[in-house]
Amino acid sequence: MALNTLEFDLKLDEVTHSIDTPIHLGVVGSGDMEVLMEPKDLKGAVSVRIVTPVAGFDELWKRVVEKFVSETLLGDVHLEINDNNATPAVVLLRLRQGFAEATGE
């Protein structure tokens, strides 16, 4: 019954950039999530930790986060997500909002 924790790293072949300041965004409402984005020396990689009550969607999570990382060319960042049944569209939206805030865009 315990929560599921998913941990993985992603690394792009391209030149990546990190963020300047740590960011927190979102509320863990039903169908929603929160994310912490922290700059961290990971030799260009992104480390990801997701805590969710939903089991069995590991591949989908990886694909969604991969999409976000490749469109933002993110590296040297630790992402930590608390999820409560967010859809892939909501996940992408929150990650993009977090990135926009982190980069001031």
Partner: peptide, 15 residues
Amino acid sequence: FYSPHLEVLGEAVEF
């Protein structure tokens, strides 16, 4: 500092 009690019950937590 999220709730350890929600975690045990498999409920979503918040930081």
